[in-house]
Design a protein around this nucleic acid. Sequence first.
DNA 1: AAGGTTATTGCAATCGATTACATACGTCGG
DNA 2: CCGACGTATGTAATCGATTGCAATAACCTT
Lengths: 332, 332
Amino acid sequence: MQERPKIGDVARMAGVSTATVSRVLSNPQIVSAETRRLVEEAIRETGYRLNQAARNLRHRRTGGIVALVPNLANPFFSQILSGIASVLAPAGFNLLVADTRAEGGASILNYAEPSRADGLIVLDGSLPAEALARRVPVVLACEWIPGLAAPRVKIDNRAAAMMAVEHLIGLGHRRIAHVAGPPGNVLTQARLAGTEQALAERGMPAPLVLPGDFTLASGRRAGEAWLALPARERPTAVFLASDEMACGFIGEVQHHGVAVPRDVSVIGFDDIELVAHMTPPLSTIRQPREAIGRRAAQRLLDRIGGDDGAEDTILPVELVLRGSTAAWAAIR
Amino acid sequence: MQERPKIGDVARMAGVSTATVSRVLSNPQIVSAETRRLVEEAIRETGYRLNQAARNLRHRRTGGIVALVPNLANPFFSQILSGIASVLAPAGFNLLVADTRAEGGASILNYAEPSRADGLIVLDGSLPAEALARRVPVVLACEWIPGLAAPRVKIDNRAAAMMAVEHLIGLGHRRIAHVAGPPGNVLTQARLAGTEQALAERGMPAPLVLPGDFTLASGRRAGEAWLALPARERPTAVFLASDEMACGFIGEVQHHGVAVPRDVSVIGFDDIELVAHMTPPLSTIRQPREAIGRRAAQRLLDRIGGDDGAEDTILPVELVLRGSTAAWAAIR
DNA sequence: AAGGTTATTGCAATCGATTACATACGTCGG
DNA sequence: CCGACGTATGTAATCGATTGCAATAACCTT
């Protein structure tokens, strides 16, 4: 009994066949109470532990779900992962995490393998649709991939952006800037479109759009760009497509003596945890990240269970008003 | 050819045995060039993809490494995971992530199974040592479990805390407070010990120690506690055992009109990304999180490869001085 | 030319579980 | 008392690859 005991060892000790042991393990109620007791006893005695690899091979499943994340180090994603994990664990699935930036693009394809994972949650909209098509069940969360037919769990980014901008308009702001996300990103487009639509509906001019990429550093650069404008032309309010950028922006302008929200109102997007504790606390759009993760995981489990629907799940956002936005007195 | 092709289908098409196909897959150089070409052709033609579960069963390995994290939603850990992933992926291992808080304590044991994972990276010091002993190779990162013999990859928390406190002393502060981590945590103890030692070595009185648990909210509460002190007795500098707490602390005191660093110097621990962009930017101790993750992963791969050493790896920290700490003019 | 190498390749056992099918034993209605 | 049926268990095939050993061919050596 040096080696790790296998099912046969248990069977021998209990005086039954391996089939019976297996049944005790996966379908106890069809085994007589007495035999079951014997087998359970033997399992305890031998310290037997099931070999997952063998079971997986037989069942033609892996028990694992892969989450493809563009950047694991980004706190935004970790909270979604947390939601995913909270659903997967009770359902008996492992969560595999792969960073699509860290891995070579080609190897991503390996994850979309039935022998590696039973399903895929994709959080990165920049992956090629063809790599994911016709393989394991896929659910898209937050971002999505144009042309890929898979259920999506997301928010209404356009409407959310409109909420943010309408809030600024409501405060009396007339020159409004938008700091966009990375070019080509589906979220960037939707949030920009929402910004433009909100302004257009009020008959206001198109926004000044500054480039960004969701990162702190790009927020700082947007701050520099704002500072570089002649004071008379500076937008009095800025809507940034991510909270991280908003932090960078505020840090930069405060560093140059600009007061928020006195001199400029700032609103972000995401409601990452820290921004509630800054000075001033950041007004923002809250994405229900945990809920997005949970719903995406549930949706995927449904698909694995045979549900073939591909309809989207749209989760509600919330406009969170804190101290970084304030009314603009037109006469200054 | 409806079904997903298996190795036998490839063999038939190439006119060779399954053994040869397998060799082409895992040991190409021992197959003659001509045969190899034939097989590769057949693989392409059939669209064959290796079944990992079968290979794993035969190899008695899983190709997966589990990281046990106390809280996936915490950005501190996600960056370590990022480092881990960057080493594991090229080495052909999957990263499985399990949130020890989300999962029931019992199920954690399941991860320490050779049939589930080839190794374990534990980032949670609160797990019971016995659950992890005598199973798969383990490496501890950041936190550690007293009584568990396994290589650790960490920083010198005591020395790091001393650096922080010596910095404050050097700025002329004489009343220094420490906001500790969760009780019982090994990091809490080491950082507190370092704080006390630094003060003792200068012949200064023991620090005021406020309770905390690494979270933003507990930092806020520490801020309240600080504010509640009579102004004359307030420590002029505070060293908090995590950056998150430092953010909460600063947010709280600023909210009550206290200026940092004019009225109180604040130094944190970790150097999470955001704190460089706050106003004021936070002075802190930088932990090389990516490097910790990478080293832990490398160490684990070594162990899996047969290296039985259990010595610790201590990575250097860096005192990062920003705007939240300033000299204290004794006469006020 | 016989014996010895070396390079390729195939046969079949193996990894450790699951499960369709067969078997054995009661039980019960007619 | 017989056959039908239900329950509990065993036998053996199966999941899809890997690999030790054997077989064959080609090539040397002396």
